[in-house]
Design a protein around this nucleic acid. Sequence first.
RNA 1: GCGGAUGUGGCGGAACUGGCAGACGCGCCGGACUUAGAAUCCGGUGUCUUUAGGCGUAUGGGUUCAAAUCCCUUCAUCCGCACCA
Length: 823
Amino acid sequence: MEKYNPRQIESKWQEVWNAPDYYRTVEDSSRKKYYALEMFPYPSGNLHMGHVRNYSIGDVVARYRMMAGYNVLHPMGFDAFGMPAENAAISHGVKPGDWTFANIKKMIGQQKAMGLAYDWEREVETCREDYYRWTQWLFQLFYKRGLAYKKEAAVNWCDTCGTVLANEQVIDGKCWRCDHEVHKKNLAQWFFKITDYADELLKDLDKLTGWPERVKTMQENWIGRSEGLELTLDVPELGEKVSVYTTRPDTSFGITFLALAPEHPLVEKICAVSPKAAEIHKFCEKVKQQSDIERTSSESEKEGIFTGIYCVNPFNGYRAQIWVTNYVVYEYGTGAVMGVPSGDQRDWMFAKKYGLEIILTLQPKGTTLKLEEMSAAYTEKEGELVNSGKFTGMEFHAGFNAIMDEAEKLGFGKRKVNYKLRDWLISRQRYWGAPIPVIYCDHCGEVLVPEEDLPVLLPDDVEFKQGALSPLSTSKKFNDVKCPKCGRKARRETDTMDTFICSSWYYLRYADPHNDKAPFSREKVNYWNPVDQYIGGIEHAILHLLYSRFFTKVLRDAGLLDFDEPFTNLLTQGMVIKDGAKMSKSLGNVVSPEEIIDKYGADTARLFILFAAPVEKDLEWSDKGVEGSFRFLNRVWRILGIFEDAVKAGADSYDPETLTDEEKIFRRAIHRTAKKVTEDLRDKFAFNTAISALMELVNAAHNFQDKEINPSLAREFASSLLRMLAPFVPHITAELWSRFFEGDVHKQSWVTYDESAIAEETVEIVVQINGKVRERVSVATNLSKAELEKLAPTLPRIQELTAGKQIVKIIAVPNKLVNVVVK
RNA sequence: GCGGAUGUGGCGGAACUGGCAGACGCGCCGGACUUAGAAUCCGGUGUCUUUAGGCGUAUGGGUUCAAAUCCCUUCAUCCGCACCA
């Protein structure tokens, strides 16, 4: 056989797979479906190693399931709206659409060069009219369900770029493009009411048994549910009330001050009457000017200013000083916090710094805490209450509840659940996104664009200027609009939607990608979805994965689909690193997939990336390792070349009893490998060990390179090996299969194995003395415990070593070992 | 600071439910083929003393006939959260 020539055979087979119906997927209720999905990429124009890893994993999963008899949906598409296209427009004058479609074309070429088994007829591109029409339709669905609303909010603003930034584009408080600090600016913005689903999003994490614990913990922390008490205090001098939220109602009798965020409305009311108004304003301005990181870092020094005004603790009448501080977050709770220095470390430090009173309310049972001896707050949630009126002496839990009961009974408090999760800000002052389908009319107010007028198309008479706010506002065509209700002149919303909305439902569209009556049909989406196996990077642990869960629940409530969670199983793959660091242009450690595929072929690239590390761990790139994988494929090619005549002469079924002893051992290896590879693929995503098992099998075959081999055994070997390798290295296996067998390896059924072919008649047992291996014996498989115990002391070597010693006991584990314990 | 994960040869990594540590690959060493090299093939490769054994899974301890695996201590690295009241 000629030399292994990946370039030639890969392009040959890619052409075969490119036929429109080759990977076409059709609903079939008689078969079990399997939906394998990799997170679709942003079309940057270039595949990187992270993509290669992601798609290689997904392709193995999909191809394995196809061979195992499932009706597999394995689609690909592009998350095609977003800033880079607009930047290209600003700096090079190219139209964002032209830039994007050119990139998509290039990336599809690269994906096809990897030999991935996608049903390309289902491809979606979120920037196309037939897709974003439904993104807009879904926005309106949310709106009609009261889940989309507009309000003024403080958003991230970058002065240098003169534009709003998404949260995800603020990295460590700085703009991702120009590296300048971001600050807050108030603007009227659209939000999705994800907080309505906070509780279900949290609770249903329990249903996600196929998700990594890590991701679930991150979502749990992000949602940040807490239970506590909202307490209202009087501010007699102003005739006002102020509410605080606490998770430690048991410490309520220890309030000695009240801390306000500078943004809190009460600050202005105080300034209206306070002689210290100027000073307070100055302090507030100073704090507001600080960046988010400065303000929210727990390391920052706690500062505050006393307003001169007091509020009253309703439990005990204590007159607590009202302070404006830099450490209270306005957006969380009520933006005001009760200061209990004895029970909270921040309050303790604040009180110490400004000489505020400290009242002890809780101490460990049986001890008496003395304030003058304490160097920190007592924050444990156990002990007994002190200085707490009629609650004094109660144990923590009892006091905790009794105090909340009392507050509710007397009407100055209420039990409350709080979340850290905020509503999702979806407006973007950008061009390259789905326009928000809303019209503003002076008479009718906010009006939805009628459904029959969707999509609201992106106009092309737009000016792209750096720093210009909402490019859509520069389009004449776009803004010339009449109110759909009253017909009077109106104006359009000029913001577009966050691209995370587009990606929150694409996995549903794949089920029914060409539907022009609805985003998808209920039948199709209920057949294919939820996704059985979702694969992507950990960086989406919260954003995309949380948003998609939210979308699924809303669409379920709207009757569009019948399941609760979008992704049954989630695999978060590790990064591809080189020289211990993430590949990046600035570090100069980027390995280009194109070069690797060019030099060794896609099969080698896929094999290496799957073999070098377990899927969920980071993978250190190694050029030498790639060569090793290439070498292995050459070995496969060569050994099958040696067996060629035998394989062709062999029969598909034969009597294994006719084999020589050596051949029987080899046959056992084939079946053992089939079992191992099947388990690794089906249950564990342990591709690295599956591949190593296949390497062992090929090594075992080398025993026969210079001798005769039973042709039928050679045939069994070739058939099993090629089918097992097919999901990993699709081209070389397709080629070799076509030379030796009928049909297409990728349409064959997965290998089966014969447990009886794996079973051995004898097994080697380790004999230990006091836990140290001293002898090995070959015994009949499944020899009983009792027999083994009897056998061990009779072995000459054991007798020799135990001579003169007393055997205390013997422990036997069938098929494993015997341990003789002596004194 | 809080929470989580990880720690095994020169390197990437194996090891089911506690039962032979180091599979497989890389690298390295030796051999075959060759005028020579490349490629390929064969063998070796934790470590220390060499009949045989001692020591070894970050550290120190514990449980057990038996520990990489279970429990506790310390250390290191990585990740997430980070004034959330």
